Amino acid sequence: MAGGMKDKTATVLVSHEEDDAVGRRIIQLIPGVEVVAYDPDATVLDDTQRSADILVPSYRGSHRPIPLITQLPRLRMVQLLSAGVDEWIAYIPANVTLASARGAHAGPVSEWVISAILTQMRQWPALVRFQDSETWAHRLFSADTLAGKRALIVGAGSIGTAVAARLSPFGALSTLVARTARDGVYSWSELSRLIPGHDIVVISAPLNDETRGLMGRALLALMDDGALLVNVGRGQIVDTEALVAELRSGRLRAALDVTDPEPLPQGHPLWKAPNVIISPHSARTVPGTNRLCYEVAAEQIQEFIAGRRPANAIER
């Protein structure tokens, strides 16, 4: 739906937390906006907060304000700071616009992908363990190079295309896959044909009914021996049990920023699986990402209150 706030002052709820201070400053600069701070962990809103037209969930733990939606009778828009919308979409009324911060995470997350690929190919986990044991490991490990490698990137949005751009200077070739084929991008209905022959498979797709369990046992089995699976999308896109089996067999390697379940509990077999590195859903977490998210959010809010459909509004 298009925006409906033109010629009206819009009240925007922005978290009172320190990570969101930059957002309060940025959004307050939008003409026709009044920023009201709120506590994402609150159970009850005051009268001023309840009059809000737009809700911006907190930068960290963005799911926390979901219960507050029922206390916002004038709500017209929810502007997320995440690229994905899967945590929120089921809770947003049909007459409320839901928009993501698509584009803000491309730089930080694609940088994480490159670092993870190089970490696995250059065998840094093994080298750190050799260092811990004070072992000069010359010729005791086998490193690899990105030059000449082929990467299949599942998800051709801002993150996926940024990954492809960052791989290119290393001499790696990228194949992009998305839900719908377009110029230079294949449809993921062709995944079973495309996966063989690629050294790296990067998951950067959003989680939805079509992608849930997409990388299951059958597609994982099609990956080349020794291939590397990198997941920065959502953990539920990959069949965890099937992946653990492939890792234990020594056939595949992985680098995961997201897992299923998440957070990964103590004792889960992924922790002890060989050939995997795991980060705690922190690929975007570097200085300045919150500012990038709020700059995109401000653009979307400004479009909405001007009566236009924001570019990142979700089709439902």
Rank of each mutant, 00 (worst) to 15 (best):
A221Q: 11
S192K: 14
A205C: 11
I159Q: 07
L214M: 07
Y186K: 14
D132P: 00
W188E: 06
I153F: 02
W136P: 01
V185T: 12
A172P: 00
G197E: 04
V201M: 08
W136G: 03
G160A: 13
M215Y: 04
S192Y: 12
A137H: 06
E134L: 11
L167P: 15
I195V: 15
A218S: 13
T145Y: 14
D132T: 04
R182T: 13
R182A: 13
S168N: 07
A165H: 08
V185R: 12
T211N: 02
A205D: 04
T175S: 03
W188Q: 13
L207K: 00
R217G: 06
R193S: 15
A205I: 07
R139D: 11
G148T: 03
S192H: 13
R139Y: 10
R212H: 13
R193E: 15
A151P: 02
D209Y: 01
T175H: 08
P206K: 05
G157Q: 04
R182I: 07
I159F: 11
S192P: 09
L219S: 10
L140F: 10
V154N: 00
G160D: 15
A164N: 14
P206Q: 00
A178I: 03
A165L: 13
L152V: 03
I159V: 15
G184F: 13
A218V: 12
A164D: 15
L152I: 03
S158D: 15
I195N: 05
K149E: 02
P196G: 00
